[in-house]
């Protein structure tokens, strides 16, 4: 039983100014439910930081710090070092958070350093596939053919011309003890992965697919549906890895064609206009099919 009073005591409280239907805020809520209050969190500059801590307000009931865009993993390294040397670790989880830009683009160096030095830090990347806080600009994790304001579609363009960077594999290449990919569409799976990550000492990386209603241009009610379709099409494979070996994948019961996923989102609208767009959708289907084979999703 959960009462209204209970909901007001959540470690990530309501009252933040995230968009209606924001999957990132859903993921944060789910993560803190698992980690509990013995957690210290850092957050890179981005939506989460802006919508959760407009002074004097804060949605956090755990010690929390935002410093800059690219140093979330570095600040977390310092926190972990400080707790360790002063004997204050006591099972505290150090949680570092960032968006896809703060993680895979501008923050990649600091993240790589944190992994390589072996800090006991859980890094969570909320992947919404673009710089949403600044108004939907392309990042290294923007998917192929997605419209963003800096990879627009037009007479000469189908949107983002490059495939999404394989960030989880970059994490795995550091041979950290645990890497996982999760989705706001699968909250039980997400919480299970966070729980496992928290039980392991050393650097951990969890990347979560978090649909963004204004950036992906869909009705807020579809946040979970779209996240689930990303998995069911094979476009966003969910898996776990220990060191550089994949140890589990979330199987998909029945392959869903990528159109089902793409057609719900305004960022792919330009692919549904003509024959040329049709051929682009086939390319995206090919990405999904390759994932299904590569990860053994079926």
């Amino acid at each position: 039983m959960l009462t209204k009073e209970d909901t007001h005591k959540e470690l990530f409280t309501m009252g933040h100014t995230g968009c209606s239907g924001c999957a990132q805020s859903m993921a944060v809520k789910l993560i803190l439910e698992v980690l509990g209050k013995n957690t210290i969190a850092t957050t890179a500059t981005g939506c989460l930081e802006v919508f959760s801590t407009r002074y004097p307000e804060s949605s956090w009931r755990i010690p929390w710090i935002h410093s800059l865009f690219e140093n979330s993993a570095a600040v977390a390294s310092g926190i972990e070092a400080a707790l360790k040397i002063t004997g204050r670790k006591n099972g505290t989880t150090v949680l570092a958070q960032g968006g896809d830009g703060g993680t895979a683009d501008i923050g990649l160096q600091a993240l790589s350093g944190m992994f390589e030095r072996g800090h006991d830090v859980l890094y969570v990347c909320y992947d919404n596939g673009a710089y949403m806080n600044t108004g939907y600009q392309r990042s290294g994790l923007t998917p192929f053919d997605a419209y963003t304001t800096t990879s627009p579609s037009g007479k000469q363009s189908f949107g983002n011309s490059r495939p999404k960077k394989y960030m989880p594999q970059i994490a795995m290449a550091h041979r950290i003890p645990y890497t996982a990919v999760a989705s706001a569409g699968y909250p039980v799976d997400l919480q299970k992965k966070i729980k496992k990550a928290a039980s392991i000492t050393g650097p951990k990386y969890v990347q979560i697919d978090v649909p963004c209603t204004p950036g992906w241009k869909y009705e807020p009610r579809y946040s979970v549906k779209i996240a689930r379709l990303a998995v069911q099409t094979g476009l966003y494979p969910l898996f776990e890895a220990e060191y550089d070996k994949i140890i589990s994948v979330k199987k998909i019961s029945k392959k869903v064609p990528v159109e089902e996923y793409l057609k719900l989102q305004g960022r792919f609208k330009h692919l549904f206009k003509d024959e040329a767009g049709r051929m682009e959708i086939e390319k995206i289907q090919k990405i999904a099919d390759e994932n299904i084979v590569k990860f053994g999703l079926l």
Binding site: T42, I65, S67, G78, R88, Q109, A110, G113
Partner: peptide
């Protein structure tokens, strides 16, 4: 660390503790 940016950031995090 891997850069001065991180060196200062590590100090920032530790000092905040």
């Amino acid at each position: 660390v891997e850069s001065e940016h991180t060196a200062a950031s590590v100090c920032l995090g530790a000092s905040a503790c």
